[in-house]
Design a protein around this nucleic acid. Structure first.
Lengths: 235, 235
DNA sequence: CTAATAGTGTCTATTAGACATTATGTG
DNA sequence: CACATAATGTCTAATAGACACTATTAG
């Protein structure tokens, strides 16, 4: 049998296979809190419980796993997040009552206001502070913890968290977000010095005033999602 | 319908699903070279081509994805590597001629001599220097490049590469391995200072002599695979 | 002795931490 | 003016880079 004949006769359902889904942890920052998007499940298993936005690969619709993740996030928020990265894949015999199950998990960031129109219009999708989550379906509690831990690491050597803010943001806002992620205060001087030296943001020329001295508004430069510092913040 | 009834009636083959496999990049260090394990494919597709060791999840045999990876590595090497971590999951419509395909990819390290008895006895499994790989099946060339890049990053802030050496190794050997991974020389003083300060290795009391001044033999301490420096080596 | 490799001393350069100081807005 | 927040100055501490130097083996 040559390869062509093999492919002709190949039956994808000949062997038992795990069920496979794609889930995302979508983070945002709102009201001084780091929040994550949860969806109330409409179907079994764990019907009516809250869980992560996700679903199955659509073999005709999706060209890649990331497209599956983004399609599902778009269904729930009405928009596509500006930052997404693969987190980890979870697969074992016990995590799903239906069968041996695999979920490819993504972590994403978006500005709260970009989602507001869509999310405010439905009641099965909501932002939850990461510090006070409800009971969750499957092992989703664990996935969120892992995503948070990874985000905490990245907050020590990158500025990707900025994608959870509006396009134009101030440095005090960016620092407050990093502090919310890390759950500890940062040194203002250290935080700003390295961002400035690495040339990761640019001034918009505008200011944001909230009753006291106004702060400069910045935007992320195009490739700042790819930049990493070679030394972590530690305190 | 309640959840119990739902699970009773659930048919895992009702929907079309990607085919799913688990592949591993296994690295070792031998003859001053970083090498990776390749297997000559016995079956279609890409029959007779070299590819990564891997295969399908055995729903009854494997409890987790990592067990699948380790089972396949054991089949090819006769042993279980002391270090394995999940690298990334690759999934898209084009990577496999059979169908939409997903592979969960692991990266592992092992000492060359631990595999020698088994690998020397077969001719469809072999170590290849990462700098001179043959034509590979699927997108395996890409997976190896990604694994190498991750290993290079880790070589800058951890000592996990030590798992690619014999249990007892010298510091010059460990540094030479890091240099082979990074493809550039490192400062001896910087390299040794941080390992010593972080308390990651311990002396065995033995020495290794090769014609000149003998070097102390060390072994990795138990939790040194979990340790990361907060600052990278840069030169 | 020399050659070769292992291991240490020590100075410089860089960058984060700490925290004081100045700047700019509101009422 | 006082007060709050934004932004900067500046000193210290920690650690990597550079490279000279000493130590220990084989001939």
């Amino acid at each position: 049998m040559n390869e062509e004949e093999f492919l002709q006769s190949y039956d994808p359902k000949a062997f038992d296979s795990p069920i496979i889904s794609v889930d995302s942890i979508l983070f945002t920052y709102h009201q001084q809190q780091l929040k994550t998007l949860l969806v109330k499940r409409a179907n079994h298993p764990f019907k009516e419980a809250w869980g992560l936005p996700g679903g199955f690969v659509d073999l005709t619709e999706d060209r890649t796993l990331e497209e599956t993740a983004l399609r599902k996030l778009n269904e729930k928020t009405g928009v596509t997040p500006p930052y997404i990265e693969q987190l980890k894949t979870y697969g074992n015999a016990d995590r799903d009552p239906r069968s041996w199950s695999i979920t490819v998990c993504y972590s994403a960031l978006i500005a709260h206001q970009d989602c507001a129109p869509h999310i405010d219009s439905v009641d099965d999708v909501n932002w939850w502070p990461v510090e006070t989550l409800p009971e969750l379906a499957f092992d989703h509690q664990q996935l969120i913890q892992d995503a948070l831990q990874r985000l905490q690491q990245k907050a020590l050597y990158s500025v990707i968290a900025g994608y959870a803010l509006d396009k134009e943001f101030t440095l005090p806002e960016l620092q407050a977000l990093h502090e919310a992620i890390l759950q500890k205060p940062l040194q203002k001087r250290s935080f700003r010095r390295r961002i400035e030296q690495a040339d990761l943001i640019e001034e918009t020329g505008k200011m944001k005033s909230e009753g006291h001295r106004p702060a400069k508004l910045y935007r992320l430069k195009p490739k700042s999602n790819a930049f990493t510092f070679t030394r972590n913040l530690e305190n």
